[in-house]
Design a protein around this nucleic acid. Sequence first.
RNA 1: GCGGGGAUUGCCGAGAGGUCAAAGGCGCAGGGCUUAGGACCCUGUCUUGUAGAGGUUCGUGGGUUCGAUUCCCACUUCCCGCACCA
Length: 974
Amino acid sequence: MQEEYDPNIIESKWQKIWKDEKIYEANPLPGAEKYFITIPFPYLNGNLHAGHTRTFTIGDVIARYNRMQGKNVLFPMAFHVTGTPIVGLADLISKKDPQTLNVYESFHKIPKDVLVTLDEPEKIVDFFKKEAEHDMSIIGYSIDWRRKFTTTTPEFKKFIEWQYERLYDLGFIVKGSHPVKWCPVDKNPVEDHDILKGEEATIVEYTLIKFRYKGYIFPCATLRPETTFGVTNLWFNPDVEYVLASVVSGELEENWVVSRECFEKLKFTDREVEFVKTVDPKELIGIKLKNPTTDNTIITLPASFVAGDTGTGVVMSVPAHAPFDYIALKDLEKEDLSDFGISSDDISNIKPVSLIEISDYGEFPAIEVVEEMGVKNQNDPKLDEATKIIYRREFHSGTLKPNTGKYSGIPVSKVKDDIIFDFTAQGLAEKFYEFSEPIICRCGTVCVVNMVKGQWFLNYSNPEWKNKVRKCLSDMEIIPEEMRTDFENKIDWLKDKACARTKGLGTKLPCDPKWLIESLGDSTIYMAYYTIANHVYSGVLTEENMVPELFDYIFLNKGDSKTVSEITKIPSDKIDEIKSEFEYWYPVDMRSSGKDLVPNHLLFYIFHHVALFDEKYMPKAIAVNGFVSLEGEKMSKSKGPLLTLKQAVSEYGADTARMYVLSAAEQMQDADWQKVGIESARKQVERFYYFSKDVLESGCQIPSPNDPRAHIDKWIESRIQYYIKEVSEGLKTIRTRHAIQNAFFLIYNDIRWYHRRGGTLCLKEVVETWAKLMAPFTPHVCEEIWHEFGHEDSIVLSSYPSVNPEKIDIVSETSEKIIIDTMEDIEEIIKVTKATPSEISLYTTPQWKVSVLKIIFDSISQNDESEGKAVNPGPIIKEAMSDPEIRKAGKDVQKYIQKMIKEIHNIPSKFVSDYLKYSISEKEALGHAKEFFEKEFSCNFFIYDYEDIEKEPDADPFKKSKFAEPMRPAIYIK
RNA sequence: GCGGGGAUUGCCGAGAGGUCAAAGGCGCAGGGCUUAGGACCCUGUCUUGUAGAGGUUCGUGGGUUCGAUUCCCACUUCCCGCACCA
């Protein structure tokens, strides 16, 4: 081995060998268990960075682990370039945007002279795909590169066209309109970076309830359409400007009365609106009309809390359940409304209608909360809080009352969508979109919600489709399992998604080629393409011959090879070979990804699979991991800070970077990349290397199974089994931090202890196992050690350690624990007494104490723990005294029992049970460490058991032996 | 607002009813080894303690239990996603 650990030399050496030996090129091996793992391909608008390093390294570790499990592993990679960011970046570079140039030069580390040439999307793609492949190679990912592609290659586009034709045929692609944030001056959708104020705003879907009066419509915007049953009156604000507008929506032509602001907003909806005239609010107030859901007569009343710029300016009033409405009515009781033609009887006749049942509240929750909070009037700021409380409680735990007819008894949270659907069908309601807070465009204009019409959608809201996805999800493994709820929630939440755009790179939508397929939609089933991409690479499959019939046959088993062969001119046996490769590799066994992709990519991945493929090709498992920040700061590709993968590898080496990023945080947690952290990781890897080197140079050999082992040899072999188990469990559940803790740090601590205890026999064996355990994480240094240890084959394909039950040696482990505990006790005494021992005696427990301990322990184990009663000493004393051997000890027995009952819980129960079960001889156990103790404490040691003391009483001059207890010898320090 | 996840000893982070003064790492301190070391090895790192012990701790306040960092309730507080954008 090299004198100095130089990751550069070791890593490039092995990377070259692995590549030359095509060790990661995966081909179907009949009979061998296959394992197909994919990681979402990177988007190439920059260099790979620490975040990729984490996600991809996790994937690589899983791939390597499964390879060492003897599986035939396929781990492919490709590049995503579809969409607008690359086009936008090319634009910024060609314009020499200073910030962009600065970020790409100083964070992405692209030399200025190269950077300025990247002024076209294609050049960016070409540049970064080479960089990305190079980066993934120098960090040692075990990728089959014969399957790489970018998402704009003609061949891949043929595949995407086929996918979208199939989706269209299946009815999953539909035309419709959707709301976007829109600047009326720029006449463009506003994206987050275009927003001056209101970045937090979201588009909220209101329901317009249409109240009718003499051919006019008073549309009320509400988030709670279910409360329509309880409407007692409507609100107009006398100080707001109202207009009458003609509103045409499809076939329907209506006259709406809304606020001026609302009228302006309506222009951007998918309705055609025309101004008719302004309306004096006074004319609107005092009108009597019908509640369409109940046929009750209701009245229109004045209210100052009604805002013209929110909703329609017309508000329906549900005093039983809406604090604003109740308090506004109360305000009116004091006022003279004769100007509006409203009598005081009109007001006093209004009775709140209760329609939602909730525990903790009576009939009229709004009244209760208003009174509890002491709300003064409708302009009291406390009303917002009161509204929130009621809304939340009623939504989450309310159910509808019998006066809601067919909705009676159903929870509010469940019934809302049905009510909206029914009301809409009955012509009672329409949808209306509004921002959660005002948005101001960079140009200073107040933005509106605009309906984009004629847009292509993937109708993810299709209930049948969703159900198939739910079913698929329930059969999948989700790692960590806690993420499953997230997936389930997101399935519910997912609505139709626009799947076409006009800008960017991508594939044309087959059913309407003036549109481009949206970039999240072309990365949903590309894993299937990996299984045939090697034939694109080799030239068998070409743009010309990749026709829909070919894909139908390969992926969907439709048609026959003869016909497809005639169309494509590919020999039919070749087609069948390709098809069989797909069938061999599919489904995907594991897709591992960052958690940001859960609500979009990973969800679509399932949706498209259930839509297109046979049930046997459904994804098997998804694993999700957290982000990486940089010294506590969020990384940003476009703004910095950023640490590139290349930089990390060149500064610290691939093995160190890999080990560090996977040990920095567990799975779902975000990892913070810190200089001190990775530097410490480098030391660890170095230590591993040098330690292995020392073992190699010591000439230590692996003992044969029959060679006699000393106590400490059995101990380390046993401990290793425990770590093998922990590491394997960590890897199976992708808890890489746990795996590394065990595979590296904890194992190393035990090896150090073994070394310190004078163990040498098993060192080589242990280091070899250690190298194998670490091989998925730090493959290069492990391969190096493996070869230096005399192996000809590659560690990549060696078998991962598995637990050998024969090496588990409880007696050695328990004995060693007694030794360690005793040593700690001695150290503590020395510390407290500040003595320098000249001689130390240990006295082991008398047998009767062991017998008593057994009685107590059995009695506790028999007591069902859940019963949870304190141990009663009575029966134990009785039982102990019936044993003549114990009885001899006389009154010490009772004292010991009482002490032990208290303390037994403070001893690990496994330790006690093993001690008792294997009748550990303490004298023998401590005997294993006599020389070690003498060396450690630099004094003579004497170990006596109880019989020894009886024979030579001088051995215990201070009668310390009476303190001896099972597992805790008495100590006398001279 | 909706949904999800957190708060542990100087820091990062394990732990999920008794094994816990609480793994491991980092940092810090002392010692050893060394020509030297930012390498390595040992020890210590809440607090008291001249015999292996005691005291006070795991966001705050209650509760369940023989026993709670771990379970329940309330509160405080932090983070993340919410769409046409990859």
